[in-house]
């Protein structure tokens, strides 16, 4: 994991941590089932308090991204694939929404919009 904490940011450290870990999970660089570093090891590497890491892990577990096994450590949750797909789907839908709104503002009709999509899909 390549986590970089920005101490000058207004965003609290544990939130930065959560965001970056989520990113790694969603992008797949952190495979499901793989172990995350122990709270202590991670906090030592980042030179922050262990409690901060623990809070991030706890929140990530609440949100379903990781699973903590008492005594063994934390692992990337197996259900993340669905979540990741879900998240990506949502992101795509939002992008579409933006594109459609733009198209409407320019004055394109529904049929013209569909035409554009078909052309793009054919070229793929």
């Amino acid at each position: 994991m390549q986590i970089i904490i920005n101490n000058s940011s207004m965003i609290p450290v544990y939130e930065q941590l959560m965001a970056q870990i989520k990113q790694e999970i969603i992008s797949g660089s952190l495979a499901e089932g793989s172990a995350l570093p122990s709270v202590r090891t991670f906090s030592n590497e980042l030179k922050i308090s262990a409690l901060t890491v623990k809070k991030a892990y706890d929140k990530l577990e609440e949100e379903g991204f990781i699973v903590t096994v008492h005594g063994k450590g934390s692992y990337v949750a197996k259900t993340d694939r669905e979540l990741a797909v879900e998240a990506r789907r949502k992101a795509v839908e939002e992008d579409f929404l933006l594109a459609v709104s733009k198209a409407k503002t320019v004055g394109l009709s529904n049929d013209e919009i569909r035409e554009i999509i078909d052309i793009i899909l054919e070229e793929q």
Partner: peptide, 22 residues
Amino acid sequence: EGLCDEIYMIDDGKLVLHEDTD
């Protein structure tokens, strides 16, 4: 800041603040 989980701040023998570092 880079090590502690919690901080106790005392002044004149009394506790002034007890809070998690983060």
